[in-house]
């Protein structure tokens, strides 16, 4: 089947098998390997991308379902090389260790911060519930999100 998608601002047309998952389309066809597969069953959140601005677990969506959609992956978060404030937060607050779960969390939480600019610690922990991180114990991920929220509160726009 033919699909047309816009990924990180670039238009693509591809013939794909109906059974091809969106995550495999991104990784194997577009070679955007920043999106990861951790569990195959939408529990770990490592495969999260934004489909039409909505965080979506791409291991549980067919590529053909994304036909006509705009998709943002982690590779599109810092298009001009300038880090998104949440990416900066992860670096500043040691929000990652092995880095495997990180892109998915970034894709969920950049969207979350758009709608929830002043989250409490409890809010952030709740918002992270769809993601598994085995390295950090989450504490510094929470702090990374708090870092970004604080920066945004100082009137810095959240890009993307």
């Amino acid at each position: 089947m033919q699909i047309r998608v816009k990924v990180n601002g670039i238009d693509y047309i591809h013939e794909v098998e109906p059974r091809l998952l969106l995550v495999h389309y991104l990784r194997d066809v577009l070679h955007l390997t920043g999106t990861h597969v951790g569990c195959d069953t939408s529990i770990c959140g490592a495969c999260t991308v934004q489909v039409n601005s909505k965080p979506t677990k791409s291991c549980t969506m067919f590529a053909v379902q994304a036909d006509g959609c705009e998709i943002l992956t982690v590779e599109g978060l810092a298009p001009n090389g300038e880090l998104h404030v949440l990416q900066e937060g992860f670096k500043e607050m040691h929000g990652l260790q092995c880095g495997f779960c990180t892109p998915g969390i970034l894709m969920t939480m950049t969207d979350y911060l758009k709608h929830n600019p002043e989250p409490s610690e409890e809010d952030i922990r709740h918002a992270l519930k769809g993601h598994l991180c085995r390295c950090t114990g989450y504490q510094n991920i929470v702090k990374s999100v708090q870092y970004a929220a604080a920066k945004i509160a100082n009137k810095e726009e959240v890009p993307a």
Binding site: R27, L32, T33, G34, T35, H36, V37, T73, V74, E75, L77, A78, L83, Q87, F90, K91, L96, C98, G99, F100, T102, P103, L106
Partner: peptide, 14 residues
């Protein structure tokens, strides 16, 4: 960190 937060990590499956 930079390579990981920008999706440029290179794991075996990549």
């Amino acid at each position: 960190d930079k390579r990981f937060i920008t999706g440029k990590g290179r794991y075996t499956d990549d």
